[in-house]
Design a binder for these strands. Structure first.
Lengths: 113, 113
DNA sequence: TTTGTTCATAACAAGAAGGTTATATATCCG
DNA sequence: CGGATATATAACCTTCTTGTTATGAACAAA
């Protein structure tokens, strides 16, 4: 997977409220599929599909415990997406500050030349 | 729009490489639709649709210059998404560190009790 | 071995996404 | 006014997404 494809997969995975809720749930530790499905008004296969999307993005990984396939959060993909966003936010903010200074400057020198 | 819907819209917008490329292009300042469309092997209406998705997510806004509708990046939505991700990353990292310490501890006391 | 549990997979339907071409709208310019 | 340019919108097609139900596979427990 190229870096661009990884970002596609990660942002796609994060773009769904059910999947974000699943991640939220996993913040407190490993959870089985049945336990994950329980709070949602949705069938177990639907949850399995969401898990597949999250797994494909590298946002979760799965273990094995008898019949159970416990899910846990994986930080790598999260860090990658954060990194991408941060880069943009930084440039944007510095542009913003530069514009701000420019405006302040214009205002300070108002009518002076 | 609820906060969840805003995140949906933002992450959905970021999940497409064309739209990310558009954002990249806008980092250097305002650009018209035609100029944005030029590097892509894609029709102008297709670009207009992408812009609509970005605008709906609050990631860009549009001005008016004669017939042109120049686009510019808007930092707010970017900051919101970054905030969400950061929160998760922090918790995950602290969990990770805790686990790390636990493992180190186990190893240090190996066989001692 | 039989039964129950957990999870995955297959097959399907409805709707959304992302592209196309054709056309409408708005603005500039001669 | 009439033509060129920039953009938006409409109608359409194809593919992906997201849900469903039914069923299969792996393992536990009796």
């Amino acid at each position: 997977m190229t870096p661009s494809e990884r970002l596609d997969a990660t942002f796609t995975a994060l773009a769904d409220p059910t999947r974000r809720a699943i991640l939220a749930r996993l913040m407190s530790g490993e959870v089985s599929v049945m336990e994950l499905a329980e709070p949602f008004a949705m069938s177990q296969p639907a949850i399995s599909k969401h898990l597949k999307v999250l797994e494909r993005a590298g946002l979760i990984s799965r273990g094995r415990d008898a019949q159970r396939r416990p899910c846990r959060i994986e930080g790598e993909a999260l860090a990658e997406a954060t990194g991408w966003l941060d880069e943009y936010r930084q440039v944007w903010e510095s542009n913003y500050k530069r514009l701000d200074m420019l405006l302040a400057d214009l205002q300070a020198n108002q009518g002076k030349a």
